[in-house]
Amino acid sequence: MKRILLIIALVFCSAHLSDAQTQNVLRVNFLNPAVSYEMATGKNTTLDTCLGFGYNYSYPDLTSASISGVQYLFAMFVDVQGRYYYNLSKREGNGKRTDRNNGNFIAARMLYTGPGISQISSFDRFDNNSFAVGPTWGLQRTYGNRFNLLFSAGPIYYFDTKGNGNIFPLNLELNLGINLN
């Protein structure tokens, strides 16, 4: 895990020469309702902060009972990703869009999930606060001038404030949204 974080840090610190560069983008996501602000922090880097209220699945070591089938939780969440877009200049050279951060990226991700609504959730957690951190790979595309598609995947380490935690090998994210600016 330390090696992966070191590689990500080195990639974020490397400089690439290109005319393409990241932009500030405000968007509303619909699949997991949220407001996201992606702030350009460098030519190829952004900090994406997302605040929302939506669904989440259970992490095996953070639930108080073994329930078979699909497990879901409706809760407030904060998702923060430091992204490095590694193919903006290649996309620009091929005549493809690079505005609104259209490209492939690697990121360091931190996800906080707050207290859920127990009446519409299928499981109980040991603690009302859980966290997940890890590297991720993703892609983001804008269609037309507004419609946004985001997909990312990567391993995470999840934990709560009571000391429970473990590694989840593949955490997936899929968002559909509208760019507001």
Rank of each mutant, 00 (worst) to 15 (best):
K96F: 13
K96T: 06
K96N: 10
R97C: 01
R97P: 02
T98Y: 04
D99R: 05
D99T: 06
R100S: 08
R100E: 06
R100L: 13
R100V: 02
N102S: 14
N102L: 00
G103L: 03
N104P: 01
N104K: 06
N104Y: 05
N104T: 12
N104S: 13
N104C: 09
F105C: 00
F105N: 03
I106R: 01
I106L: 08
I106D: 05
I106K: 00
I106F: 12
A107N: 06
A107F: 04
A107P: 03
A108Q: 03
A108T: 10
R109K: 15
R109V: 08
M110I: 15
L111H: 07
L111G: 01
L111S: 04
Y112T: 12
T113I: 14
T113L: 12
T113P: 02
G114K: 13
G114M: 12
G114P: 12
G114H: 07
P115I: 08
P115A: 10
P115H: 11
G116M: 14
G116I: 10
S118A: 11
S118H: 10
S118I: 09
Q119D: 10
S121T: 15
S121K: 11
S121G: 07
S121R: 09
S121A: 05
S121M: 11
S121H: 11
S122W: 14
F123R: 10
F123C: 06
F123G: 00
F123A: 08
F123Y: 15
D124T: 13
D124Y: 14
R125M: 13
R125W: 07
F126A: 05
F126T: 06
D127H: 11
N128H: 13
N128L: 07
N128W: 11
N128D: 14
N129Y: 13
N129R: 09
S130Y: 04
S130R: 11
F131S: 03
A132H: 05
A132C: 10
V133T: 15
G134W: 03
P135C: 07
P135H: 00
T136G: 02
W137A: 09
W137H: 09
W137Y: 15
G138Y: 00
L139N: 10
L139M: 13
L139H: 08
L139K: 10
L139G: 11
Q140M: 08
Q140I: 06
Q140R: 14
Q140T: 13
R141F: 07
R141W: 02
T142V: 15
T142G: 01
Y143F: 15
Y143A: 03
Y143I: 11
Y143K: 07
Y143M: 06
Y143R: 09
G144S: 02
N145M: 02
N145K: 13
R146F: 03
R146C: 00
F147V: 02
N148K: 04
N148I: 15
N148F: 01
